[in-house]
């Protein structure tokens, strides 16, 4: 096994078949070190969300080799993908994707309970995470009662619940204004660095590029170039 948190070698993804086949990834090589904060950028249809979906174990690659920390997931059967998601991944979605009927605490507790936390332990951890994202006064607020920025903070707290080693974020600032977008990304960066999470953020938002350790540009299904930022 490699020393990388994420190690992707020559990964391809084909959607459809025959004349309708579309090659979304054309042999991507991509690696992320443990604790690194990487942004994936590129135009629409370039394959960045497909790559994120494969890293998040919600989609399987057509070919290639993928390792998440100690596990080779290249040939894992689809039935085992939920286990991998629980073991390795925390997600932050573009539209926060919180469960509307659950309050902020319950949205986080749900994940913790499914990961085996006891009831009291899950509640305490959910409250700790909500305090950490600055929502200590919104513990029992439902998503409908929160602003866009607050919802995304709950989503970040949920992604960190149970301390998964890898956090994947899909356009986390897309639904936010510039100020909130920056604040949310800074929060994600701070919490990830504090606790050693490896983070991959898909984004178009150049206003947050300065927060990344590295920016990987993907174009037409291939890694086009990388920019390393000074820490």
């Amino acid at each position: 096994m490699s020393d990388y948190a994420i190690n992707v070698r020559n990964v391809t993804k084909v959607y459809g078949d025959g004349d309708n086949a579309f090659l979304a990834l054309k042999g991507v090589d991509f690696a992320v070190s443990p604790g690194e904060f990487v942004m994936l950028s590129g135009p629409s249809g370039s394959g960045k969300t497909t790559l994120l979906s494969i890293l998040g174990c919600v989609l399987t690659a057509t070919s290639g080799h993928i390792e998440l920390l100690t596990e080779d997931i290249s040939r894992v059967k689809e039935a085992h993908l939920p286990r991998l998601r629980r073991e390795y991944i925390g997600f932050v979605f573009q539209a926060h994707n919180l469960i509307a009927s659950l309050d902020a605490t319950q949205n986080i507790e749900l994940l913790l309970r499914m990961r085996g936390f006891g009831r009291a332990e899950a509640t305490a951890e959910a409250h700790r995470l909500l305090h950490a994202v600055g929502l200590g006064d919104k513990l029992e607020s439902r998503p409908g009662d929160l602003s866009g920025g607050q919802r995304q903070r709950v989503a970040i707290a949920r992604a960190l619940a149970g301390s998964p080693p890898i956090i994947l974020a899909d356009e986390p600032t897309a639904a936010l204004d510039a100020q909130n977008g920056l604040a949310v990304t800074e929060l994600l960066l701070r919490l990830a660095k504090d606790h050693g999470h490896t983070v991959v953020v898909v984004t178009h938002d150049s206003r947050i590029f300065h927060l990344a350790d590295r920016i990987v540009h993907i174009e037409d299904g291939l890694i086009a170039r990388e920019e390393k930022r000074a820490s």
Binding site: R83, Y88, R113, G116, G162, P165, H197
Partner: peptide, 30 residues
């Protein structure tokens, strides 16, 4: 440094049933 896996990864059947049941009821009554 963070662990190579999440702290805990799998609940027992009864915990999953009770958790999913609560979510289902909250969705229903919402």
């Amino acid at each position: 440094m963070i662990a190579a896996r999440a702290i805990k990864t799998r609940a027992s059947f009864l915990v999953r049933l009770s958790t999913m049941g609560r979510v289902g009821l909250r969705m229903m009554f919402f």
